[in-house]
């Protein structure tokens, strides 16, 4: 038996919005410690990994490890039927070929139930080792989204260059070129606007904006995004999954990490 309850349905909606255009089908691995998912896009250039901690749920029970393969587009459709403030419970019985989704409205007298068929999906699991990255940039997620969107007006790829003075995002195309430079800054009053750069050595790598723009669908999950880069390894773009509850307190309940291989010739 598997049962997981989140107090705010909007978190699950945001997670699905962040991944379902990149991957249509994927398997959730459910263990006593939480739920996780790893899937590559069809061209095997990018990968998304989601991790939800069991203790981030208001109720979490996993009697034995389960793999729940499903169509994420369909899951997303069903989740659109849940209110943002609904409590959402995912239930799966051992050996069953479907999962149940239960939405409880805040008014406490309205309960909706939906079922989704499970799928047997071929496992395509990549072993990603713990890596020490040369450059780590932590910046406002909305700023990163804006930069990727704006530079995609200029070209298909962005070159991320890190030096002691800061980080440059630049693109070149038929109409010309453009760049956005950020330097480290910190604000006590608005920590969500901070830019933090940690660098061992200067670095410059180029990535397809098509994928980065897909990654920024996770922007509503968290105010800050972390970019991790090293020569000859894929870029990692990480968003914490933050649940804001009624008292406006924020709990980190997991993360989404996107991996993107660099452009050829880099």
């Amino acid at each position: 038996m598997f049962e997981a309850k989140l107090d705010r349905g909007i978190v699950l909606k945001k997670i699905l919005d962040a991944i379902n255009q990149l991957v249509n089908e994927a398997s959730w691995e459910c263990t006593s410690s939480g739920m996780s998912l790893q899937a590559m896009d069809t061209s095997h250039v990018s990968l998304v990994a989601v991790n939800l901690n069991g203790d981030g749920f208001s109720k979490f029970r996993c009697d034995r490890n389960m793999v729940l393969g499903m169509n994420l587009v369909n899951l997303s459709k069903i989740l659109k039927c849940a209110g943002n403030d609904d409590k959402v419970t995912i239930k799966a019985a051992d050996g069953d070929d479907k999962i149940k989704l239960i939405f409880e409205a805040p008014n406490e007298y309205e309960v909706s139930q939906y079922e989704i068929k499970l799928m047997n999906l071929d496992a395509e699991y990549l072993g990603i080792p713990e890596t020490s990255y040369n450059v780590t940039v932590k910046m406002p997620a909305a700023k990163f989204q804006r930069i990727c969107r704006d530079l995609n007006q200029i070209g298909d790829a962005v070159t991320i260059s890190c030096t002691k003075s800061g980080v440059d995002f630049s693109a070149t195309g038929d109409l010309g070129n453009g760049s956005v430079s950020l330097s480290q800054n910190s604000s006590f009053d608005k920590p969500e606007d901070n830019v933090t750069i940690s660098m061992q050595e200067p670095l410059s790598q180029t990535f397809a904006l098509k994928y980065l723009n897909q990654f920024t669908k996770a922007t509503p999950l968290c105010s800050q995004v972390t970019l991790s880069l090293s020569p000859d390894v894929p870029l990692v773009v990480e968003y914490k999954i933050i649940e804001e509850n009624e008292e406006d307190s924020k709990n980190e309940i997991g993360h989404i990490r996107y991996y993107l291989a660099p452009k050829i010739d880099d």
């Binding site: 590559m40 061209s43 095997h44 250039v45 990018s46 990968l47 395509e124 699991y125 990549l126 072993g127 990603i128 080792p129 298909d156 790829a157 180029t206 397809a208 994928y211 390894v233 894929p234 991996y259 291989a261 660099p262 452009k263 050829i264 010739d265």
Partner: peptide
């Protein structure tokens, strides 16, 4: 369309 490396070139698939 720019040419991209594939992720399995970097990580073990199991």
């Amino acid at each position: 369309e720019i040419e991209q490396q594939c992720l399995p070139n970097y990580y073990d698939d199991s």
